[in-house]
Design a binder for these strands. Structure first.
Length: 261
DNA sequence: AGCCTCGGACAGTCAACATA
DNA sequence: ATGTTGACTGTCCGAGGCTA
Protein backbone atom coordinates (compact mmCIF):
# COMPACT_ATOMS: atom_id res chain seq x y z
CA UNK A 1 0.00 0.00 0.00
CA UNK A 2 1.49 3.33 -0.93
CA UNK A 3 1.92 5.41 2.12
CA UNK A 4 0.20 8.69 2.56
CA UNK A 5 3.44 10.53 2.43
CA UNK A 6 4.36 8.93 -0.82
CA UNK A 7 1.08 10.06 -2.21
CA UNK A 8 1.87 13.49 -0.98
CA UNK A 9 5.24 13.35 -2.62
CA UNK A 10 3.76 12.13 -5.80
CA UNK A 11 0.95 14.60 -5.71
CA UNK A 12 -1.07 12.16 -7.71
CA UNK A 13 -4.22 12.63 -5.69
CA UNK A 14 -4.19 16.09 -4.31
CA UNK A 15 -7.71 15.78 -3.15
CA UNK A 16 -9.60 12.74 -2.09
CA UNK A 17 -11.91 11.99 -4.95
CA UNK A 18 -15.50 11.98 -3.82
CA UNK A 19 -17.36 8.75 -4.29
CA UNK A 20 -20.02 10.56 -6.20
CA UNK A 21 -20.85 14.15 -6.87
CA UNK A 22 -19.49 16.27 -4.11
CA UNK A 23 -21.96 17.48 -1.59
CA UNK A 24 -20.08 20.53 -0.51
CA UNK A 25 -18.38 23.22 -2.45
CA UNK A 26 -14.75 24.06 -1.95
CA UNK A 27 -15.70 27.66 -1.97
CA UNK A 28 -18.03 30.06 -3.59
CA UNK A 29 -17.14 32.36 -6.38
CA UNK A 30 -18.60 34.55 -9.01
CA UNK A 31 -18.29 33.48 -12.58
CA UNK A 32 -19.38 35.83 -15.30
CA UNK A 33 -21.27 37.72 -12.68
CA UNK A 34 -23.16 34.65 -11.59
CA UNK A 35 -22.72 33.27 -8.09
CA UNK A 36 -21.37 29.78 -8.26
CA UNK A 37 -19.87 27.12 -6.10
CA UNK A 38 -16.62 25.50 -7.04
CA UNK A 39 -16.56 21.73 -6.68
CA UNK A 40 -13.75 19.30 -7.26
CA UNK A 41 -14.67 17.36 -10.34
CA UNK A 42 -15.25 13.71 -9.48
CA UNK A 43 -12.55 11.59 -11.04
CA UNK A 44 -15.05 8.91 -11.85
CA UNK A 45 -16.81 11.35 -14.09
CA UNK A 46 -13.80 12.63 -15.90
CA UNK A 47 -13.93 11.83 -19.57
CA UNK A 48 -12.23 8.52 -20.04
CA UNK A 49 -10.25 9.67 -23.01
CA UNK A 50 -8.66 12.40 -21.03
CA UNK A 51 -5.15 11.16 -20.96
CA UNK A 52 -3.80 10.21 -17.67
CA UNK A 53 -0.84 12.48 -17.46
CA UNK A 54 2.15 10.65 -18.70
CA UNK A 55 4.42 9.53 -15.98
CA UNK A 56 7.38 11.74 -15.94
CA UNK A 57 10.69 10.40 -14.82
CA UNK A 58 13.63 12.29 -13.56
CA UNK A 59 16.78 11.91 -15.59
CA UNK A 60 18.70 10.57 -12.68
CA UNK A 61 17.24 9.45 -9.40
CA UNK A 62 19.33 9.79 -6.27
CA UNK A 63 20.84 6.68 -4.78
CA UNK A 64 18.30 6.57 -1.96
CA UNK A 65 15.26 6.81 -4.18
CA UNK A 66 16.78 4.41 -6.62
CA UNK A 67 17.34 1.89 -3.87
CA UNK A 68 13.85 2.33 -2.54
CA UNK A 69 12.33 2.39 -6.00
CA UNK A 70 10.59 5.60 -5.11
CA UNK A 71 9.90 8.76 -6.93
CA UNK A 72 12.77 11.18 -6.90
CA UNK A 73 13.03 14.72 -8.18
CA UNK A 74 15.68 16.77 -9.83
CA UNK A 75 16.48 18.86 -6.82
CA UNK A 76 19.34 17.88 -4.54
CA UNK A 77 18.62 16.99 -1.88
CA UNK A 78 15.43 15.54 -3.24
CA UNK A 79 12.18 15.84 -1.35
CA UNK A 80 12.26 12.26 -0.21
CA UNK A 81 15.76 12.49 1.20
CA UNK A 82 14.90 15.73 2.95
CA UNK A 83 11.85 14.11 4.42
CA UNK A 84 13.80 11.17 5.75
CA UNK A 85 16.61 13.33 7.00
CA UNK A 86 19.26 11.91 4.69
CA UNK A 87 19.86 15.02 2.65
CA UNK A 88 23.60 14.59 2.79
CA UNK A 89 23.31 11.17 1.18
CA UNK A 90 21.24 12.48 -1.67
CA UNK A 91 23.55 12.11 -4.62
CA UNK A 92 22.95 11.16 -8.21
CA UNK A 93 23.23 7.50 -8.94
CA UNK A 94 25.75 6.41 -11.52
CA UNK A 95 24.39 5.31 -14.83
CA UNK A 96 25.90 2.41 -16.62
CA UNK A 97 27.44 2.95 -20.00
CA UNK A 98 25.18 1.77 -22.74
CA UNK A 99 26.26 -1.31 -24.62
CA UNK A 100 27.54 -0.68 -28.11
CA UNK A 101 28.00 -2.74 -31.19
CA UNK A 102 24.88 -4.81 -30.77
CA UNK A 103 23.76 -6.16 -34.15
CA UNK A 104 20.14 -5.74 -35.07
CA UNK A 105 17.97 -7.64 -37.46
CA UNK A 106 16.21 -6.09 -40.44
CA UNK A 107 13.57 -3.54 -39.60
CA UNK A 108 9.91 -4.26 -39.88
CA UNK A 109 8.34 -1.83 -42.26
CA UNK A 110 5.67 0.39 -40.89
CA UNK A 111 2.40 0.00 -42.75
CA UNK A 112 1.78 3.69 -42.64
CA UNK A 113 -0.19 3.53 -39.42
CA UNK A 114 1.81 5.29 -36.86
CA UNK A 115 4.61 3.87 -34.88
CA UNK A 116 5.36 0.21 -35.00
CA UNK A 117 6.55 0.25 -31.47
CA UNK A 118 3.66 -1.09 -29.41
CA UNK A 119 5.69 -1.31 -26.31
CA UNK A 120 5.65 2.44 -26.30
CA UNK A 121 2.10 2.58 -27.54
CA UNK A 122 0.80 4.73 -24.75
CA UNK A 123 -0.16 7.44 -27.18
CA UNK A 124 -2.40 5.20 -29.22
CA UNK A 125 -3.85 3.72 -26.09
CA UNK A 126 -4.88 7.12 -24.90
CA UNK A 127 -6.14 8.45 -28.17
CA UNK A 128 -9.44 6.64 -28.22
CA UNK A 129 -12.20 6.29 -25.72
CA UNK A 130 -13.13 2.66 -25.17
CA UNK A 131 -16.73 3.78 -25.14
CA UNK A 132 -16.28 5.58 -28.41
CA UNK A 133 -17.19 8.88 -26.87
CA UNK A 134 -16.25 11.97 -28.77
CA UNK A 135 -13.61 14.10 -27.18
CA UNK A 136 -14.99 16.37 -24.53
CA UNK A 137 -13.85 19.91 -24.27
CA UNK A 138 -11.85 20.65 -21.21
CA UNK A 139 -13.65 20.91 -17.97
CA UNK A 140 -13.04 24.04 -16.07
CA UNK A 141 -9.56 24.01 -14.74
CA UNK A 142 -9.02 26.16 -11.74
CA UNK A 143 -5.71 26.28 -10.11
CA UNK A 144 -5.69 27.59 -6.62
CA UNK A 145 -2.27 27.96 -5.12
CA UNK A 146 -3.31 26.04 -2.04
CA UNK A 147 -4.52 23.20 -4.18
CA UNK A 148 -1.76 23.10 -6.67
CA UNK A 149 -0.22 19.74 -7.05
CA UNK A 150 2.89 18.47 -8.63
CA UNK A 151 5.39 19.73 -11.08
CA UNK A 152 5.19 18.49 -14.62
CA UNK A 153 8.78 19.36 -14.83
CA UNK A 154 11.08 20.81 -12.30
CA UNK A 155 14.74 20.95 -12.86
CA UNK A 156 17.44 23.08 -11.49
CA UNK A 157 18.76 25.32 -14.18
CA UNK A 158 15.69 24.62 -16.21
CA UNK A 159 12.57 26.65 -16.67
CA UNK A 160 10.47 27.13 -13.56
CA UNK A 161 8.32 24.20 -12.54
CA UNK A 162 4.97 23.83 -14.17
CA UNK A 163 2.13 22.47 -12.13
CA UNK A 164 -0.84 20.58 -13.30
CA UNK A 165 -4.28 21.89 -12.65
CA UNK A 166 -6.87 20.04 -10.68
CA UNK A 167 -10.11 19.88 -12.61
CA UNK A 168 -13.07 21.59 -11.05
CA UNK A 169 -16.48 22.45 -12.18
CA UNK A 170 -18.75 25.30 -11.35
CA UNK A 171 -22.29 24.77 -10.24
CA UNK A 172 -24.76 27.45 -9.51
CA UNK A 173 -25.81 28.14 -5.99
CA UNK A 174 -29.09 26.32 -5.29
CA UNK A 175 -31.45 29.09 -6.17
CA UNK A 176 -29.83 29.38 -9.58
CA UNK A 177 -30.57 25.82 -10.62
CA UNK A 178 -32.91 26.88 -13.36
CA UNK A 179 -30.10 28.52 -15.24
CA UNK A 180 -28.00 25.46 -15.57
CA UNK A 181 -26.53 24.48 -18.85
CA UNK A 182 -28.30 21.24 -19.43
CA UNK A 183 -26.23 18.49 -20.93
CA UNK A 184 -27.78 16.89 -23.92
CA UNK A 185 -28.37 13.16 -23.95
CA UNK A 186 -25.51 12.67 -26.31
CA UNK A 187 -23.23 14.82 -24.28
CA UNK A 188 -24.18 13.24 -21.03
CA UNK A 189 -23.33 9.76 -22.08
CA UNK A 190 -20.86 8.56 -19.58
CA UNK A 191 -20.96 11.78 -17.69
CA UNK A 192 -22.93 13.13 -14.88
CA UNK A 193 -26.55 13.71 -15.71
CA UNK A 194 -26.29 16.72 -13.50
CA UNK A 195 -25.65 19.87 -15.38
CA UNK A 196 -22.62 21.99 -15.27
CA UNK A 197 -21.65 25.12 -17.01
CA UNK A 198 -20.35 25.10 -20.48
CA UNK A 199 -16.78 23.98 -20.24
CA UNK A 200 -14.61 26.93 -19.64
CA UNK A 201 -10.94 27.12 -19.09
CA UNK A 202 -9.58 29.68 -16.78
CA UNK A 203 -5.91 30.19 -17.26
CA UNK A 204 -4.23 28.80 -14.17
CA UNK A 205 -2.47 31.22 -11.97
CA UNK A 206 1.24 30.83 -12.37
CA UNK A 207 2.52 28.45 -9.82
CA UNK A 208 4.34 30.18 -7.07
CA UNK A 209 7.56 28.26 -6.85
CA UNK A 210 8.35 28.98 -3.27
CA UNK A 211 7.23 27.84 0.07
CA UNK A 212 8.34 28.71 3.49
CA UNK A 213 9.66 26.48 6.18
CA UNK A 214 10.71 27.63 9.60
CA UNK A 215 14.41 28.22 10.02
CA UNK A 216 16.03 25.85 12.48
CA UNK A 217 17.09 28.76 14.61
CA UNK A 218 13.57 30.01 14.71
CA UNK A 219 14.51 33.23 12.98
CA UNK A 220 11.94 33.58 10.31
CA UNK A 221 11.41 31.23 7.43
CA UNK A 222 13.29 29.74 4.54
CA UNK A 223 11.99 29.97 1.02
CA UNK A 224 12.43 26.98 -1.15
CA UNK A 225 11.46 26.07 -4.67
CA UNK A 226 9.32 23.07 -3.94
CA UNK A 227 5.59 23.15 -3.96
CA UNK A 228 3.84 23.24 -0.65
CA UNK A 229 3.46 19.59 0.14
CA UNK A 230 1.50 18.39 3.06
CA UNK A 231 4.53 16.63 4.37
CA UNK A 232 6.04 18.06 7.51
CA UNK A 233 9.79 17.96 7.40
CA UNK A 234 11.53 16.77 10.52
CA UNK A 235 13.44 19.49 12.27
CA UNK A 236 16.71 17.64 12.26
CA UNK A 237 16.79 17.50 8.50
CA UNK A 238 17.58 21.16 8.34
CA UNK A 239 20.53 20.51 10.56
CA UNK A 240 21.85 24.00 10.43
CA UNK A 241 24.27 23.20 7.64
CA UNK A 242 23.92 24.94 4.38
CA UNK A 243 23.58 28.47 3.30
CA UNK A 244 20.93 30.77 2.03
CA UNK A 245 21.26 31.88 -1.53
CA UNK A 246 19.16 34.05 -3.75
CA UNK A 247 17.60 31.88 -6.36
CA UNK A 248 16.63 32.85 -9.83
CA UNK A 249 12.98 33.03 -8.94
CA UNK A 250 13.66 36.01 -6.81
CA UNK A 251 13.41 34.18 -3.54
CA UNK A 252 15.85 32.57 -1.23
CA UNK A 253 16.60 28.94 -0.79
CA UNK A 254 18.67 26.83 1.48
CA UNK A 255 21.54 25.03 -0.16
CA UNK A 256 22.45 22.07 1.95
CA UNK A 257 26.10 21.20 2.03
CA UNK A 258 26.57 17.66 0.94
CA UNK A 259 29.56 17.10 3.19
CA UNK A 260 30.75 18.71 6.30
CA UNK A 261 34.36 18.77 7.25
C1' DA B 1 -0.46 4.53 9.90
C1' DG B 2 3.90 4.48 8.24
C1' DC B 3 7.76 2.27 6.31
C1' DC B 4 10.14 -1.19 3.50
C1' DT B 5 10.66 -4.41 -0.30
C1' DC B 6 10.35 -5.64 -4.91
C1' DG B 7 8.14 -7.30 -9.42
C1' DG B 8 7.12 -5.43 -13.40
C1' DA B 9 5.04 -1.71 -16.30
C1' DC B 10 6.38 2.31 -18.15
C1' DA B 11 9.45 5.97 -19.92
C1' DG B 12 13.64 7.76 -21.93
C1' DT B 13 17.86 7.12 -24.48
C1' DC B 14 20.54 6.27 -28.27
C1' DA B 15 23.08 3.24 -31.59
C1' DA B 16 21.95 0.48 -35.53
C1' DC B 17 19.62 0.67 -39.50
C1' DA B 18 16.98 2.68 -43.57
C1' DT B 19 16.39 5.98 -46.93
C1' DA B 20 16.36 10.37 -49.38
C1' DA C 1 22.47 13.71 -43.48
C1' DT C 2 18.45 12.70 -41.50
C1' DG C 3 14.75 9.95 -39.93
C1' DT C 4 13.18 5.49 -37.93
C1' DT C 5 13.36 1.57 -35.13
C1' DG C 6 13.87 -1.21 -31.29
C1' DA C 7 16.99 -2.84 -27.62
C1' DC C 8 18.57 -1.39 -23.52
C1' DT C 9 18.45 0.77 -19.12
C1' DG C 10 16.52 3.41 -15.44
C1' DT C 11 12.44 5.05 -12.92
C1' DC C 12 8.87 4.32 -9.94
C1' DC C 13 3.87 2.46 -9.38
C1' DG C 14 1.48 -0.29 -6.57
C1' DA C 15 0.76 -4.43 -3.89
C1' DG C 16 2.09 -7.00 -0.01
C1' DG C 17 4.35 -7.53 4.32
C1' DC C 18 6.25 -5.85 8.59
C1' DT C 19 6.52 -2.88 12.63
C1' DA C 20 5.37 0.46 16.10
Amino acid sequence: MPSVEDKALDGEEPLEPPSHMPTHALHSAAFSGMPVHVYPFPHSLLPAQQPRSKRRQVKNACTNCQKACKKCDDARPCLRCVKYGVSEECVDSQRKERKKGIKRGPYKKRDGKGRACLKHGSASRRSTDPRGLPPRPAILHLLASTLSTRPLHSKQGDSPPVYSAQPYFLAPVPHMQGQLHTVSEDESQGYSPEGFYQPTVITPMPYHPHYSIPRPDGEGTIQSHYPMYSTVYPKETMGGQGEMINNRNGGQELVVNSKQD
